[in-house]
Design a protein around this nucleic acid. Structure first.
Length: 649
RNA sequence: GCUGUUAUGGCUCAGUCGGUAGAGCGUCACCUUGGUAAGGUGGAGGUCACGGGUUCGAUUCCCGUUAACAGCUCCA
């Protein structure tokens, strides 16, 4: 057989050969580094015997998939260590993940000290250097083995596997685990690992099941890489919006106000106000009509929209259904309110599309463990909008929404940081949705076509649709790599009927419109959180709550500094004066100006000419300028929302 | 909601095996340096998250509540 290797070269063998032996044949170094093989694009175990012509790629910890194998093996070593130290622990599952690996156990929670001793035991196991053996068992034998070892979770897993599945096991030094692999040849190859944390996790991810104890860890091919990663973990904490946003006094939380109810401090509020004014103006330019609708309504409204049936638990209900004649609820969305704006007058096809926009404050009663900084809150304000359209207008209006969203993203400088997700219904679980399968298929296909015409790359996600229609979700990751929906554009073919919304067509017949639910810049709190992390607090000038700081270099220049401040303020520039600058020299103060884009040093020799010395975050020392020139420059920058390139550490 | 951790001056944290608290940084005042990433001296600032209990006495021990953090689950 002929084996074609990654570098294009070929190896020829007369008999069947295991991948690991081929690796040794190439070089002993490669064999030592090898963690898995990739045969014709499929990741397989190094023990796999090759018997046909194929393309072979030997994976090492330098390959993403090879690293996953290393981490997976590390998780097995961890499980062995746990079983040695705590024989009563029951093992569940232990895969590799993006950042490392985890393993779930039925056991009391582990403390940091426990993790340290498990780490120690793991090092011992690695030093012992057991070989890892793979073997296969029949279903019956497999169940028997795991019953003998008193591992009920493994038995359950085997019972749920398909009848014809090959049941493979891996054994190292007496520790046996049901596992599809692939795994390293020996535990000796694990060079750099660290146990990160421990927490609870439901068996099989179901909250009705028992909560197991999960240990997270990570592993790398080299010690340096591990250390680099651990340093990186510390570094990203510095730009975590939940920490930085509080430090910069953008927001705060208060015990007695409650969870998920952050206070936007003057600086944070100023930033959100800047965004809001900008986006409201832009929407109006694009033909949106602004509405202002109530923050609450009688329950009757939500009964019509079906929220009372589907989402009552998520709403703040005012009053007691049993006792009170009228029960109200704070609004969790704006949809039905804007529908009644539409319904106030009979509409003609000539009135469509009807684009309604509202800067809308919403209330959602999230579970207590879900709140996080500004990204998951109980009250938030969103650039909400609904477009009522005829079937012929769907594509153009949908494109308009995508265009608006992209305009927002590019202006904020984050267009390259998002991914697009088409959130579809789950055909297996149609009870969650309004309408029937045929209509859903039709609308989902329509979405795919529109997205095709726009030409954006997206991935499809089943079961993520809204109950009234599919969504185009624009996703972004936070500093920890966790994904959140920043912007969503949804196509709704059902609610118009529930609310009996109509328009009269050319022939004088009443027709059902379609509705597009959309947001332009998303929810302001979450968007702010995103921007904090994106820019590590070094915002573009137009967004900065403090754009210029004026620094007199000695007391004689205080009056002049104040007059400069006044002129800047008259121009609408957000600025402050720091009269303490002269005390120790402005160079020093500069280190504390790192979040302010411009520093004006006044009191230089040139003050008689209205000349200031400018330092900028972007350009360093810009030297002397007349005040008028500086004001013109910065106003231009703010107006065009220019985002200059800066170094963000 | 679940599992766990945490809660001490503006920030980072120490501490009291129960006798009402400390450090570094920051901040403030003054001195020196007439303005290029300075130094010195002195000061302010905490009912140790909140509510109960045990005790002669609780910041410290116990119970509860609230909030923050990590993860799970959820997210119209």
């Amino acid at each position: 057989m002929n084996i074609r290797l990654k570098d294009g070269s070929c190896k020829e063998y007369s008999e069947d050969k295991a991948i690991i032996d081929i690796a040794y044949d190439i070089s002993e170094g490669l064999a030592r580094m090898a963690t898995a093989g990739e045969v014709d694009g499929k990741v397989v175990d190094l023990r796999t015997i090759l018997s046909h012509d194929c393309e072979l790629n030997i994976l090492t910890a330098n390959d993403e998939k090879g690293l996953a194998a290393l981490r997976h093996t590390t998780s097995h070593v961890m499980a062995e260590a746990v079983k040695r130290l705590y024989p009563e622990a029951k093992v569940a599952i232990g895969p590799s993940i993006d950042t490392g690996f985890y393993y779930d156990f039925e056991h009391e929670p582990f403390s940091r000290e426990d993790l340290d001793s498990i780490e120690k035991e793991m090092k011992k196991i690695i030093k012992e250097g057991a070989k890892i053996e793979r073997f296969e068992l029949s279903r019956q034998e497999a169940i028997q083995l795991m019953q003998d070892k008193n591992e009920p979770y493994k038995v359950e897993l085997i019972q749920d596997l398909p009848e014809d599945e090959v049941l493979s096991f891996y054994e190292q030094g007496g520790f046996v685990d049901l596992c599809a692999g692939p795994h390293l040849m020996s535990v000796k190859s694990i060079k750099a690992f660290k146990l990160i944390s421990s927490s609870g996790a439901y068996w099989r991810g179901n909250e009705n099941n028992k909560m197991l104890t999960r240990i997270y860890g990570t592993a790398f091919g080299k010690k340096d890489e591990l250390n680099e990663y651990l340093v990186h973990l510390e570094e990203i904490k510095k730009r975590d919006h939940n920490k930085l946003g509080r430090e910069m006094e953008l927001f705060a939380t208060v015990d007695v106000i409650g969870q998920g109810l952050p206070l936007l401090m003057p600086k944070g509020a100023m930033m959100i106000q800047t965004l809001q004014r900008w986006i409201e103006d832009e929407e109006e330019r694009r033909g949106y009509m602004r509405t202002k609708t109530p923050l609450m309504a009688k329950k009757d409204l939500y009964v019509i929209s079906d929220h009372w049936e589907h989402y009552k638990e998520g709403m703040f209900v005012l009053g007691d259904e049993e006792k009170d004649e009228e029960v109200f609820a704070l609004r969790p969305m704006t949809c039905p309110f804007q529908y009644y704006v539409y319904k106030q007058k009979q509409k003609s096809y000539r009135d469509l599309p009807c684009r309604y926009g509202e800067t809308s404050t919403l209330f959602r009663n999230e579970d207590s463990g879900e709140m996080h900084g500004l990204t998951r809150v109980r009250q938030f304000t969103i650039s909400e909008g609904h477009l009522v359209v005829t079937p012929e207008q769907i594509e153009e209006e949908f494109k308009g929404c995508v265009d608006l969203a992209k305009y927002c993203l590019s202006t904020l400088g984050v267009e390259a940081d998002v991914t697009y997700q088409l959130s579809l219904s789950d055909p297996e679980n149609m009870g969650k949705y309004l309408g029937n399968r045929e209509t859903w298929n039709e609308v989902e296909q329509m979405m795919r076509e529109i997205l095709g015409h726009i030409g954006i790359n997206y991935k499809e996600e089943t079961g993520e649709a809204a109950f009234y229609g599919p969504k185009l979700d624009i996703q972004a990751k936070n500093v920890y790599g966790k994904e959140d929906t920043m912007i969503t554009i949804q196509l709704d073919m059902f609610l118009a009927e529930r609310f009996d919304m109509t328009y009269v067509d050319k022939n004088g017949e009443k027709k059902r419109p379609y509705i597009i639910h959309r947001t332009s810049i998303g929810c302001y709190e979450r968007t702010l959180a995103w921007l904090i992390e994106k820019y590590a607090g070094l915002f573009p000038t137009w967004l900065c709550p403090e754009q210029v700081r004026v620094l007199p270099i000695s007391e004689k220049y205080h009056d002049y500094a104040q007059s400069v401040l006044k002129q800047l303020k008259e121009e609408g520039i957000k600025c402050t004066v720091d009269e303490r600058g002269e005390k120790i020299g402005y160079k020093i103060r500069e280190s504390r100006l790192d979040k302010v884009p411009y520093m004006l040093v006044v009191g230089a020799k040139e003050e008689e000419e209205n000349v200031v010395s400018v330092r900028s975050r972007y350009l360093g020392d810009e030297g002397a300028k007349t005040l008028a020139t500086f004001i013109a420059d910065i106003n231009q920058e703010i107006k065009t929302k220019e985002i200059r390139k800066i170094e963000v550490e």
